[in-house]
């Protein structure tokens, strides 16, 4: 049984917001909410400057706290691991945002619903990569079966080699 994973390689990321805009275009997200957010940190180790990036997004958790929090049972986890919000059921109450440690679910004021990363399920069903993964010029995002992705990361492969 395939279990999908989207993995982030912090050593590769250069902090450009390509993934953010790719996601916005693909999923038609207005100004305001963002399913992906990059954070940058500049710090010193033994007097040497360092810079690191992180990508905040839905982790499609093993036991998603958002599912517990949703009062109308609009959130489900599929057998392939993808956590999805059913927009028909969502009332926009934002309880899932409160429950999520990453604040990954995002309120869309235009639609009055909460949305979050779907792993571009409409693309992967067609055999395409999620938009953020395909467009990342830094090779920092990996998508595929969790075992294949983990192996690719361990072998330091480029994402297109997964």
């Amino acid at each position: 049984m395939v279990k999908y994973a989207l993995m982030f390689h912090p050593d590769r990321c250069v902090g450009c917001p390509t993934c953010v805009v790719a996601c916005k275009q693909e999923n038609e997200i207005p100004v305001g909410p963002s399913w992906l957010r990059i954070t940058k940190r500049v710090y010193k180790v033994d007097g040497k400057l360092k810079m690191s990036f992180n990508l905040l997004r839905c982790m499609h958790c093993g036991r998603p706290p958002c599912i517990e929090a949703c009062p109308v049972n609009a959130i489900t986890k599929r057998s392939d691991g993808i956590v999805l919000i059913n927009k028909e059921l969502c009332t926009g109450c934002k309880a899932c945002i409160e429950a999520c440690p990453f604040k990954a679910p995002q309120y869309n004021p235009e639609k009055d619903v909460v949305e979050m990363c779907t792993l571009c399920v409409h693309r992967i069903e067609k055999g395409l990569l999620p938009s953020c993964v395909q467009h990342c010029p830094a090779g920092a995002l990996y998508f595929g079966d969790v075992n294949a992705v983990t192996a690719a990361l361990q072998e330091n492969k480029w994402p297109t080699e997964v």
Binding site: T18, A22, Q25, E26, Q134, P137, T160
Partner: peptide, 24 residues
């Protein structure tokens, strides 16, 4: 409706930057 990278094009191998992705 949408502009995305072409994985078959050698210059960018499917990748893009925000400028092209927002060009619509």
């Amino acid at each position: 409706k949408k502009i995305e990278g072409d994985p078959e094009f050698p210059q960018n191998e499917g990748t893009m930057c925000p400028k092209g992705l927002a060009f619509v």
